[in-house]
Design a binder for these strands. Structure first.
Lengths: 223, 223
DNA sequence: CTAATCGTTTGATTTATATCAAGGACTTTG
DNA sequence: CAAAGTCCTTGATATAAATCAAACGATTAG
C-alpha cells in the first residue's frame, strides 16, 4: 500500500503478509478481549467495528471497506478493545504486527504509512465526536451518506448510487440515533427529493443539497 | 517515557527533544491548519484540543495533562486538523516528528511506545463515541469526573478532590451537552450527596455511587 | 470602591429524538 | 406456496436535553 518502494522492499512486504483469511457474513474477525497479534487489511468485503458497554449497549465505531486497515485498537494493551464483524463475505490479509514493526524499522516508507493510517483514524474519530456532539439527525445522516459514496467512488463505484451493507439499526448505532430516527430521516430526505431510497438501495439525487444539509454553513456562505 | 532503554538511547532521546516551549493560559500551542512538524509532550499545565465545524460549532475532543502527548492529528496530512489551547500556563517539550521517526527505527522500544500512544488515543476516542452515542447526561458527567480524578491521582494528586481547569461550557462541548445541562447535572449530583461542588472545586463523596452512575450495569450486577 | 465582565445557577418552556406500538415488505425455510 | 423471520416504515406519545431568560457570584479593570 505505501508507495515508492523498491522491488526488494515489496518482496519483504509480500512475505510479511503471511496469509489470508476468509470471513463469512456475520462472522467475527476478532472480538473484544481477543489477544492482539495482527492488523488486517481488507481485500474484499465490508466490516463494522463496535464496542460494547458493560451493560450491553453497543456502539458501532466504524464501517470499513476494501483497502482499509483494522485492528489498531489492539496495539495499546495487546488485546482488542472492540470487535470486527463482516457485514458481507470478506477476505482479509493478516499482517502480524511484530512483522509490521520489524519491517517499519527497515523501510521508512512503511513506517510513514503506518503512522499515517493511525493518525487518519484519530482524525476520523475527531470528526465523529463533532458529529455525535453537535449535529442533528438529518446532518448526521447526510454526512454519513456522503462519506460512504465518496469512499465507494474512490474504489471505482458510482458516485451517486449505492447499496448499503448495514441495517438501519447499525447506522443508528454509528450515528448515535435510534433505527426509527434513521428510517424517518431517510423518508424525509426522500420526500424532499434529495435522495431515492428503496430498502438498502440509495441514490443521491441532489448531492449539493445533501452537502448543504451536512454542513449548514456552506449554505449560508452561498446566500 | 518508554522504559527499558540503554544509556546511549536515553541520550539520543534527550537530543531529540530539542527545546521546550512555554504556553500561557488561553494561548494556542497549534491551530487547525497549521503545518505539522512536531509532537508535544506536556511537561506541566493543562490543555484542551478542539475541532471546529465550517459553521463555527466547536467540539472539544480532549483534555490533556502532564505526561500526555498531543499533536498526533497532524501526522496524516502534514497539517493539524485541530487546535490545542492551554487552559493554564503550560510547558511542553517539542519533539520534531522527523526525529521521532528516525529514532523509532533505531530504538524498538521507542517505536513500540509511539504505536501504543497512538493506539491508546484511538481506543479513548472509541470510548468517547460510546459516551456521546449511548449515554445520558448524568452518566457522561460521572464518567468524565471519574476519568479526571483517576488521571490526576496517577500524577500524585488526591483521588477524591480536584480543581477543574475548564469551564462548564468546555465540559459540555466535550460531553456533547450544553453548559446549562452540565450545571444542572452538577447540582443534581451534589443534591444527591454524591459530590461536593463549589465552582471549579469538586470533591467526590461517594465514588462507588458515581461509578454505578457511569455504568448502570455494575449496579444491576450487585443487586 | 464601583462597575464591568465572565462564568455559573436556576426556572420556564420548547423541541428533537426516543419510546411504544402496529403493520408492511422482503427473504428464507419448509 | 405458506409460514416464519428480519428488517423497515409510520403513527402516537413521552422525555431528556436544549433554549430562552434572569439573576447571582467571582474576578478584573478603572
Amino acid at each position: 500500500m505505501p508507495i515508492g518502494l523498491e522491488v526488494s522492499e515489496i518482496k519483504k512486504l509480500d512475505e510479511m503478509i503471511e496469509k489470508r483469511r476468509q470471513v463469512k457474513q456475520g462472522q467475527m474477525l476478532y472480538a473484544n478481549g481477543d489477544p492482539f497479534t495482527s492488523l488486517y487489511a481488507i481485500r474484499t468485503g465490508f466490516f463494522k467495528t463496535c464496542v460494547v458497554n458493560e451493560d450491553g449497549r453497543e456502539q458501532v465505531t466504524g464501517f470499513q471497506m476494501a483497502g482499509e486497515i483494522i485492528g489498531l485498537d489492539g496495539i495499546v494493551s495487546d488485546q482488542h478493545s472492540c470487535s470486527a464483524i463482516a457485514l458481507e463475505d470478506a477476505e482479509v490479509c493478516i499482517m502480524p504486527f511484530a512483522s509490521v514493526e520489524d519491517l517499519s524499522r527497515e523501510i521508512p516508507a512503511l513506517q510513514r504509512h503506518v503512522h499515517r493510517v493511525m493518525s487518519r483514524e484519530i482524525v476520523r474519530e475527531n470528526g465523529m465526536m463533532m458529529m455525535l456532539g453537535n449535529m442533528r439527525a438529518e446532518e448526521r445522516l447526510a454526512a454519513f451518506l456522503l462519506n460512504l459514496v465518496q469512499r465507494l467512488h474512490a474504489r471505482g463505484f458510482s458516485q451517486s448510487e449505492m447499496v448499503l451493507r448495514m441495517t438501519r439499526e447499525e447506522i443508528g448505532s454509528y450515528l448515535g440515533l435510534k433505527l426509527e430516527t434513521i428510517s424517518r430521516t431517510f423518508s424525509k430526505l426522500s420526500d424532499d427529493g434529495i435522495i431515492e431510497v428503496k430498502q438498502r438501495y440509495v441514490k443521491i439525487l441532489a448531492p449539493d443539497t445533501l452537502k448543504k444539509l451536512s454542513n449548514p454553513q456552506t449554505c449560508q456562505t452561498v446566500l
